[in-house]
Nucleic acid binder design. Structure first.
Lengths: 189, 189
DNA sequence: GTGGTTGATGAGACCGCGTCTCATCAACGT
DNA sequence: ACGTTGATGAGACGCGGTCTCATCAACCAC
């Protein structure tokens, strides 16, 4: 048991998404978010580096999971098999209860360039982590970068479909997207 | 003839790069940049949306050039031939005198996450523009996205090598990078 | 239990970013 | 000579983000 309400982070996240959706990102101040969560501005900035980060902090674990998935894959795996293992490792993060949450999150992010920009940055971070993990497994730089890019693209496409309510679980969608991207890449002329 | 010094934009850009390189991004205020350019903060924000944009405004023309290159390519061109045409179209932007400038720019951008983030955003914008131009030429969505991604990656790799002083001109480097990426993508397993 | 420690929180000052409004003024046309 | 145009300057304003100091509930040692 904690001495204070233990879920202040999540309260702030929910308050932020609600307010951004209700009245827009620019029209919402950090003090407002904190107040709705029963906290103050100072506490908000102790939890999140800046106003944008409240919507993205949950993704920071994904880089680690992807890298761990690559590291744990069997010997002799090809680059795309390593990427598939990475996607498998991150699949556990996506449980059914979060589909609606993810959909709301995506809508809010898409509503403001400042958030789209942070999204692009986080995505680059994911790709960088995946690429580094692949290099760690002996993959050369260029194929590692390409495989990482395909993996992150599959990751995002699968997330979009999952949030949109497709019946398959996340892991199935991610695998399918990775396969589709691989086939398309091999066919490029 | 203009009534005021006509190059206020470029003066601001140079002042910003100088100050960022000398004393760091965080330690440089917009008012300082404007003062070194003989202007004021208000004028800075009339020229650039925000403090970061002063380093990236020059790239906004690239999206247009890439799209025009795709649109002007001959009928029957494959996706990667369209991308190559796009890279050719943007090559004229890179003249010898700017190599050193590009190198300084790259160093400053790499020195601060806020600038790396804007770079990722601009890169996503380039890829989106290129992808849209490819779709306009009848390329299906997935291959268009992949070819655009390869094109932008080649664009950036070639720019990095060009700034680092490799003897070839930009167009040659870009073509070589695109070919290398294509080969690596086709070989991915 | 008494007292000290720990750690999350609140309060509030502070500075820079970014926006906005209004005034200024050089070049141009009539 | 006069009005227009358009870039600029001046300065107020609100919010983002940082920092310091005070508060206070839970825990620990004795």
């Amino acid at each position: 048991m904690a001495r204070w309400e233990p879920d202040s982070r999540m309260r702030l996240v929910r308050a932020a998404i609600d307010l951004f959706a209700e009245q827009g990102y620019d029209e919402t101040t950090v003090a407002e978010i904190a107040a709705r969560a029963g906290l103050t501005k100072a506490t908000f900035f102790r939890q999140f580096r800046d106003k944008r980060e409240v919507l993205f902090a949950g993704q920071d674990a994904h880089s680690t999971l992807l890298a761990e998935g690559v590291a744990a894959a069997p010997d002799g795996a090809t680059p795309l098999e390593l990427v598939a293992a990475a996607l498998d490792a991150v699949t556990a993060s996506f449980v059914e209860e979060q589909r609606a949450f993810g959909a709301r999150l995506r809508a809010v992010v898409a509503s403001h360039d400042e958030l789209v920009e942070r999204d692009a940055f986080k995505r680059a971070g994911l790709a960088g982590a995946l690429r580094a993990a692949l290099r760690e497994r002996g993959i050369a730089d260029t194929p590692a970068g390409l495989a990482a890019e395909l993996g992150v693209e599959a990751f995002h496409r699968a997330f979009a479909r999952w949030c949109d309510g497709e019946p398959e679980d996340y892991g199935t969608l991610a695998r399918a997207e990775l396969d589709a991207l691989h086939a398309a890449a091999a066919a490029l002329r």
